[in-house]
Protein backbone atom coordinates (compact mmCIF):
# COMPACT_ATOMS: atom_id res chain seq x y z
CA UNK A 1 0.00 0.00 0.00
CA UNK A 2 2.98 2.24 0.63
CA UNK A 3 3.52 2.20 -3.11
CA UNK A 4 0.14 3.85 -3.73
CA UNK A 5 0.56 6.32 -0.94
CA UNK A 6 3.81 7.39 -2.55
CA UNK A 7 2.05 7.60 -5.88
CA UNK A 8 -0.28 10.28 -4.57
CA UNK A 9 2.56 12.19 -2.99
CA UNK A 10 2.66 15.20 -5.32
CA UNK A 11 -0.89 15.13 -6.65
CA UNK A 12 -1.79 18.50 -5.16
CA UNK A 13 1.28 20.17 -6.69
CA UNK A 14 0.69 18.55 -10.05
CA UNK A 15 -2.89 19.78 -10.17
CA UNK A 16 -1.84 23.23 -9.15
CA UNK A 17 0.91 23.31 -11.79
CA UNK A 18 -1.59 22.29 -14.44
CA UNK A 19 -3.85 25.17 -13.48
CA UNK A 20 -1.07 27.72 -13.47
CA UNK A 21 0.54 26.97 -16.84
CA UNK A 22 -1.70 28.45 -19.48
CA UNK A 23 -1.59 29.80 -22.98
CA UNK A 24 -2.63 33.45 -23.09
CA UNK A 25 -5.89 34.20 -24.88
CA UNK A 26 -4.15 36.45 -27.38
CA UNK A 27 -1.53 33.82 -28.22
CA UNK A 28 -4.25 31.20 -28.57
CA UNK A 29 -6.07 33.37 -31.11
CA UNK A 30 -2.89 34.15 -33.01
CA UNK A 31 -2.10 30.48 -33.40
CA UNK A 32 -5.61 29.70 -34.63
CA UNK A 33 -5.35 32.54 -37.12
CA UNK A 34 -2.11 31.09 -38.46
CA UNK A 35 -3.59 27.61 -38.64
CA UNK A 36 -6.56 28.82 -40.67
CA UNK A 37 -4.26 30.85 -42.86
CA UNK A 38 -2.15 27.82 -43.66
CA UNK A 39 -5.18 25.61 -44.22
CA UNK A 40 -6.62 28.18 -46.65
CA UNK A 41 -3.39 28.34 -48.59
CA UNK A 42 -2.69 24.68 -49.05
CA UNK A 43 -5.31 22.11 -48.95
CA UNK A 44 -8.50 22.84 -50.93
CA UNK A 45 -6.59 22.43 -54.18
CA UNK A 46 -4.45 19.57 -52.90
CA UNK A 47 -4.16 17.10 -55.73
CA UNK A 48 -4.60 13.45 -55.06
CA UNK A 49 -2.36 11.30 -57.21
CA UNK A 50 -4.06 8.00 -57.88
CA UNK A 51 -2.16 4.95 -56.62
CA UNK A 52 -2.09 3.29 -60.07
CA UNK A 53 -0.59 6.43 -61.53
CA UNK A 54 2.04 6.43 -58.80
CA UNK A 55 2.77 2.79 -59.55
CA UNK A 56 3.43 3.43 -63.24
CA UNK A 57 5.50 6.50 -62.46
CA UNK A 58 7.67 4.53 -60.03
CA UNK A 59 8.01 1.70 -62.53
CA UNK A 60 9.09 4.04 -65.33
CA UNK A 61 11.58 5.91 -63.17
CA UNK A 62 13.07 2.65 -61.83
CA UNK A 63 13.38 1.20 -65.36
CA UNK A 64 15.10 4.35 -66.60
CA UNK A 65 17.57 4.27 -63.71
CA UNK A 66 18.34 0.59 -64.37
CA UNK A 67 18.85 1.24 -68.11
CA UNK A 68 21.13 4.22 -67.46
CA UNK A 69 23.17 2.31 -64.90
CA UNK A 70 23.56 -0.77 -67.10
CA UNK A 71 24.43 1.15 -70.28
CA UNK A 72 28.22 0.98 -69.84
CA UNK A 73 27.97 -2.74 -69.09
CA UNK A 74 25.77 -3.37 -72.15
CA UNK A 75 28.17 -1.44 -74.38
CA UNK A 76 31.05 -3.58 -73.15
CA UNK A 77 29.12 -6.78 -73.80
CA UNK A 78 28.14 -5.66 -77.32
CA UNK A 79 31.72 -4.71 -78.10
CA UNK A 80 32.97 -8.04 -76.81
CA UNK A 81 30.42 -9.97 -78.88
CA UNK A 82 30.76 -8.08 -82.15
CA UNK A 83 34.29 -6.79 -81.82
CA UNK A 84 33.09 -3.42 -83.04
CA UNK A 85 34.11 -0.06 -81.86
CA UNK A 86 32.27 2.53 -83.85
CA UNK A 87 34.37 5.56 -83.13
CA UNK A 88 37.66 3.84 -83.81
CA UNK A 89 37.69 4.87 -87.48
CA UNK A 90 37.88 8.48 -86.37
CA UNK A 91 41.29 7.84 -84.82
CA UNK A 92 42.47 5.71 -87.71
CA UNK A 93 43.55 8.79 -89.69
CA UNK A 94 46.21 9.49 -87.09
CA UNK A 95 47.60 5.97 -87.00
CA UNK A 96 51.31 5.66 -87.58
CA UNK A 97 53.05 2.37 -88.07
CA UNK A 98 55.02 1.49 -84.94
CA UNK A 99 58.78 1.69 -85.27
CA UNK A 100 61.04 -1.34 -85.37
CA UNK A 101 63.93 -1.89 -83.01
CA UNK A 102 66.69 -4.45 -82.75
CA UNK A 103 67.75 -6.90 -80.08
CA UNK A 104 71.28 -8.33 -80.18
CA UNK A 105 71.34 -12.12 -80.07
CA UNK A 106 73.89 -14.92 -80.19
CA UNK A 107 72.72 -17.80 -82.35
CA UNK A 108 73.24 -21.49 -81.51
CA UNK A 109 76.37 -21.72 -83.64
CA UNK A 110 77.97 -18.86 -81.70
CA UNK A 111 77.53 -16.25 -84.40
CA UNK A 112 76.29 -12.87 -83.37
CA UNK A 113 73.08 -11.60 -84.86
CA UNK A 114 70.03 -9.53 -84.14
CA UNK A 115 66.28 -9.76 -83.99
CA UNK A 116 64.03 -7.03 -85.39
CA UNK A 117 60.85 -6.28 -83.44
CA UNK A 118 57.98 -3.94 -84.16
CA UNK A 119 56.46 -2.03 -81.27
CA UNK A 120 57.96 0.18 -78.57
CA UNK A 121 61.49 -0.27 -77.37
CA UNK A 122 61.81 -1.28 -73.73
CA UNK A 123 58.03 -1.84 -73.55
CA UNK A 124 56.71 -4.39 -76.04
CA UNK A 125 57.21 -5.75 -79.51
CA UNK A 126 56.98 -8.86 -81.62
CA UNK A 127 59.60 -10.38 -83.83
CA UNK A 128 59.35 -9.55 -87.52
CA UNK A 129 62.86 -10.40 -88.72
CA UNK A 130 66.27 -11.71 -87.83
CA UNK A 131 69.73 -12.04 -89.36
CA UNK A 132 73.43 -11.51 -88.85
CA UNK A 133 74.53 -8.37 -87.12
CA UNK A 134 73.73 -5.44 -89.39
CA UNK A 135 71.98 -7.66 -91.94
CA UNK A 136 68.64 -8.42 -90.33
CA UNK A 137 65.70 -7.67 -92.59
CA UNK A 138 62.06 -7.13 -91.77
CA UNK A 139 59.70 -9.78 -93.07
CA UNK A 140 56.44 -8.33 -94.35
CA UNK A 141 53.12 -9.19 -92.72
CA UNK A 142 50.83 -10.45 -95.45
CA UNK A 143 47.04 -10.49 -95.51
CA UNK A 144 45.44 -13.89 -94.79
CA UNK A 145 48.80 -15.57 -94.14
CA UNK A 146 49.15 -17.01 -90.66
CA UNK A 147 52.58 -16.59 -89.20
CA UNK A 148 54.42 -17.12 -85.95
CA UNK A 149 55.41 -14.04 -83.99
CA UNK A 150 57.31 -14.01 -80.71
CA UNK A 151 56.10 -11.22 -78.43
CA UNK A 152 58.53 -9.62 -75.93
CA UNK A 153 57.63 -7.47 -72.95
CA UNK A 154 59.53 -5.24 -70.59
CA UNK A 155 58.03 -4.18 -67.28
CA UNK A 156 57.48 -5.04 -63.65
CA UNK A 157 56.23 -8.43 -62.50
CA UNK A 158 52.96 -6.80 -61.45
CA UNK A 159 52.10 -5.17 -64.77
CA UNK A 160 53.11 -8.25 -66.75
CA UNK A 161 50.95 -10.58 -64.69
CA UNK A 162 47.80 -11.92 -66.37
CA UNK A 163 46.45 -13.44 -69.56
CA UNK A 164 47.71 -12.11 -72.86
CA UNK A 165 45.02 -10.67 -75.11
CA UNK A 166 45.20 -8.96 -78.47
CA UNK A 167 42.37 -6.96 -80.01
CA UNK A 168 43.02 -6.19 -83.66
CA UNK A 169 41.34 -3.07 -85.02
CA UNK A 170 41.22 -2.60 -88.77
CA UNK A 171 40.99 0.65 -90.68
CA UNK A 172 37.21 0.70 -90.57
CA UNK A 173 37.28 0.39 -86.82
CA UNK A 174 36.11 -3.21 -86.61
CA UNK A 175 37.54 -5.22 -83.75
CA UNK A 176 38.83 -8.62 -84.81
CA UNK A 177 40.47 -11.62 -83.24
CA UNK A 178 43.92 -11.98 -84.77
CA UNK A 179 45.53 -14.57 -82.47
CA UNK A 180 45.32 -18.16 -83.69
CA UNK A 181 44.37 -20.86 -81.23
CA UNK A 182 45.35 -24.53 -81.25
CA UNK A 183 42.65 -25.51 -83.69
CA UNK A 184 43.44 -22.78 -86.21
CA UNK A 185 40.48 -20.73 -85.00
CA UNK A 186 41.05 -17.12 -84.02
CA UNK A 187 40.90 -16.28 -80.31
CA UNK A 188 40.94 -13.15 -78.18
CA UNK A 189 43.51 -14.33 -75.70
CA UNK A 190 46.14 -16.86 -74.69
CA UNK A 191 47.27 -17.76 -71.18
CA UNK A 192 49.89 -16.04 -69.05
CA UNK A 193 53.23 -14.77 -70.35
CA UNK A 194 56.38 -16.89 -70.18
CA UNK A 195 59.64 -15.93 -68.46
CA UNK A 196 62.48 -13.74 -69.68
CA UNK A 197 63.80 -14.11 -73.21
CA UNK A 198 66.36 -12.29 -75.38
CA UNK A 199 66.75 -9.61 -72.70
CA UNK A 200 63.02 -9.02 -72.33
CA UNK A 201 61.33 -9.58 -68.95
CA UNK A 202 58.57 -11.76 -70.40
CA UNK A 203 57.72 -13.33 -73.73
CA UNK A 204 55.00 -15.34 -75.38
CA UNK A 205 54.99 -17.12 -78.74
CA UNK A 206 51.97 -16.42 -80.92
CA UNK A 207 50.46 -17.09 -84.31
CA UNK A 208 48.61 -14.22 -85.90
CA UNK A 209 46.63 -13.73 -89.06
CA UNK A 210 45.13 -10.56 -90.48
CA UNK A 211 42.12 -10.94 -92.79
CA UNK A 212 42.53 -7.61 -94.60
CA UNK A 213 45.42 -5.49 -95.78
CA UNK A 214 46.15 -1.98 -94.58
CA UNK A 215 46.81 -0.60 -91.14
CA UNK A 216 45.99 -2.66 -88.08
CA UNK A 217 46.11 -1.46 -84.53
CA UNK A 218 46.83 -4.21 -82.04
CA UNK A 219 45.63 -3.42 -78.55
CA UNK A 220 47.56 -5.57 -76.15
CA UNK A 221 45.97 -6.43 -72.82
CA UNK A 222 47.66 -8.19 -69.93
CA UNK A 223 45.08 -9.33 -67.44
CA UNK A 224 42.26 -6.79 -67.42
CA UNK A 225 44.42 -3.79 -68.24
CA UNK A 226 45.49 -2.54 -71.60
CA UNK A 227 49.27 -2.70 -71.63
CA UNK A 228 50.01 -0.86 -74.89
CA UNK A 229 49.34 -0.94 -78.59
CA UNK A 230 51.28 -1.70 -81.73
CA UNK A 231 50.33 -0.48 -85.23
CA UNK A 232 51.42 -2.55 -88.19
CA UNK A 233 50.94 -2.41 -91.93
CA UNK A 234 49.57 -5.58 -93.49
CA UNK A 235 50.44 -6.04 -97.12
CA UNK A 236 48.04 -7.24 -99.80
CA UNK A 237 50.42 -10.01 -100.93
Amino acid sequence: MKQFEEMNEYDREFKSMNNKINLAQKEQEDILYQINNKIGRKSPTRRQVSPIWKYYLTLTVTSLIIIILSLPLLTNIIQDRTGNLNNESIHQQNWEVSPTFKLPVTFGDGTKGEYVLVGKEEKLGFLVGSGKEGEAAVQPIVKGKANKYMWHFWGSEEELNGDFKVVGINETGEREKVLLGNNEETVWNYGELGGSNNGADKHIPSSMVFPTSGLWKLEVYIGDKMFDEVIVHVQEN
Binding site: N22, L23, N36, I39
Partner: peptide, 15 residues
Protein backbone atom coordinates in the same frame (compact mmCIF):
# COMPACT_ATOMS: atom_id res chain seq x y z
CA UNK B 1 -14.42 20.86 -37.05
CA UNK B 2 -10.69 21.52 -36.47
CA UNK B 3 -11.51 25.04 -35.28
CA UNK B 4 -13.98 23.65 -32.76
CA UNK B 5 -11.44 21.16 -31.50
CA UNK B 6 -8.89 23.92 -31.20
CA UNK B 7 -11.19 25.97 -28.97
CA UNK B 8 -11.79 22.97 -26.74
CA UNK B 9 -8.34 21.37 -26.49
CA UNK B 10 -5.62 23.84 -27.50
CA UNK B 11 -4.76 24.93 -23.96
CA UNK B 12 -4.60 21.35 -22.70
CA UNK B 13 -2.34 20.32 -25.55
CA UNK B 14 -0.15 23.35 -25.06
CA UNK B 15 0.31 22.45 -21.37
Amino acid sequence: RVNDWYHTYSNDIYK
